[in-house]
Design a binder for these strands. Structure first.
Length: 424
RNA sequence: GGAGAGGUGGCUGAGUGGUUGAAAGCGCUCCCCUGCUAAGGGAGUAUAGGGUAAUCCCCUAUCGAGGGUUCGAAUCCCUCCCUCUCCGCCA
């Protein structure tokens, strides 16, 4: 959520910034609503103040057994009036809230301009794609009948679900442990475990709602529960309605969860194998920092995700998402893209974003310094460190041998207990 | 799932219709006193929105959430959420 004071004072800047996303900000509408709100609210509060005074007077008069019928009559009228105004005000507030909640975050000045993912800016490349002296297979050719069981997923649930077996299930678990261990012991994150079902408030807090409900799986029942689409939601919401002491900042959490995404609107995209599924595992990094630290924190967090790719000797590149591709809540996003030999291209395996105070304002997540007692919104960041299914995919494809076996990357050997898998 | 109790400020905990944003205690901050990290005295100590340039000041809201009764509700009524105890079921 954007700061309404900023909307008022730096209107031009906001309009310009949002237009870089291709977002058309209807300032006239907002200004109109705000003006009405301000007037009505000021008047209403004034009336309320009067009523409060009269009520106190009545109280005092009754104590001394004086006649209060005249005052009560006056108060009755005021009460009716206020009730009426409040109804109008509430309606207005709902409209304003709806409007403001659907505004995306402002993007940083160094976010490249562009209309879609084709115009994302490559920042750096690390490692180089391995040359194969045979035609590399794709991950499904490698894993089919040997641990990646798409048919079983379809039988149990439906399309876009998978079953993993044996070495490949083990590989995923080994990766999971490597990632969490690394982030905890080398990068200073605290491990957390959270619910996989989240409520509406949590989704509003991080920005998945109200605009992106079609991406989510909603549960039946009156509770308005959803399956979590990313650990970002439950983990970042740990800060909701909290005031953190400045000494504990930055707070850094690492968390593994499955992620459930309806993938509505992605029909026909990545239909083969485990690239894009309704359920996948992910290790997520989340940070809460002071606003002055969030630029550095994004670089740091991105580096933490990269460290995993480096450990695994996977070739990747870092791109800065352009203004047309960047997410709704994000001010700046780096995607990490891993080399996928079968597609001869880099594919997203992590997305690291700085949300500045956008989520914090929605969640009322603040911090307070010891010296001056003022509260300030925290800045939140998160990034995948990494998406597990795609890491499994990348390892299978990048470390395949001519005979279809997979050489296990050094960093993983202790976790897996072998240096080669799928050697039939 | 059944029966009962309860949800008040950083914490403990008073408060069943009237100057209560809320007693008291603890904690915390600042000051005073005190010849030694003890004791005592004083002041302060929620969040958000609006008026404002303002972290002073003024107004409004908030005692789990939402609605209702009333001139006036932390206090009465209704619905929901959550916590605790006992029983049942269960990994």
């Amino acid at each position: 959520m954007l700061d309404s004071k900023k909307l008022r004072k730096e209107t031009e800047l906001v309009i310009q910034n949002l237009s870089r996303r291709g977002f058309n900000f209807d300032f006239k509408k907002w200004e109109n609503l705000e003006l009405q709100r301000k007037e009505l609210q000021a008047f209403n509060e004034n009336q309320q103040s009067k009523l409060n005074d009269i009520s106190k007077e009545i109280g005092l008069a009754k104590k001394e057994s004086n006649d209060t019928s005249k005052l009560q009559k006056e108060a009755s009228m005021l009460t009716a009036e206020i009730k009426n105004q409040t109804k109008q005000l509430d309606q207005l507030l709902m409209q304003i809230n709806e409007f403001v909640m659907s505004l995306p975050n402002l993007i940083d000045t160094d976010v490249p301009d562009g209309k879609d993912e084709t115009e994302n800016l490559e920042i750096r490349k690390c490692g180089s794609p391995k040359e194969f002296d045979f035609t590399p297979k794709d991950h499904l050719e490698l894993g089919e009948n040997r641990g990646i069981d798409m048919e079983a997923g379809v039988k149990i649930t439906g399309s876009r679900f998978k079953v993993l077996r044996n070495d490949i299930a083990h590989l995923q678990r080994a990766l999971l442990n490597l990632m969490i261990d690394t982030h905890v012991s080398e990068h200073g994150y605290e491990e957390v475990y959270v619910p996989y079902i989240v409520n509406e408030d949590s989704l509003l807090g991080t920005g998945q709602l109200p605009k992106f409900e079609e991406d989510l799986f909603k549960l039946e029942g009156k509770n308005n529960f959803y399956l979590t689409s990313t650990a970002e939601v439950p983990v970042t919401n740990l800060f909701r309605d909290e005031i953190l002491d400045s000494e504990i900042l930055p707070v850094k959490y690492v968390c593994h969860t499955p992620c459930f995404r309806s993938e509505a609107g992605s029909y026909g995209k990545d239909t083969r194998g485990i690239m894009r599924l309704h359920q996948f595992e992910k290790v997520e990094l989340v940070q809460a920092v002071e606003s002055s630290d969030s630029d550095d924190a994004l670089e740091e967090l991105t580096g933490h995700a990269e460290a995993i790719l480096r450990k695994l000797d996977l070739p990747y590149r870092v791109v800065s998402l352009c203004s047309g591709d960047i997410g709704f809540s994000s001010a700046k996003t780096y995607d990490l893209e891993v080399w996928v030999p079968s597609q001869s291209s880099y594919r997203e395996i992590s997305s690291c974003s700085n949300f500045r105070d956008f989520q914090a304002r929605r969640m009322k997540a603040r911090w307070r310094s010891k010296q001056d007692k003022r509260t300030e919104l925290i800045n939140t960041l998160n990034g995948s460190g990494l998406a597990l299914s795609r890491t499994v995919l990348a390892i299978l494809e990048n470390f395949q041998e001519a005979d279809g076996s997979i050489t296990v990357p050094d960093a993983l050997r202790d976790y897996l207990g072998k240096d080669r898998i799928l050697s039939t």
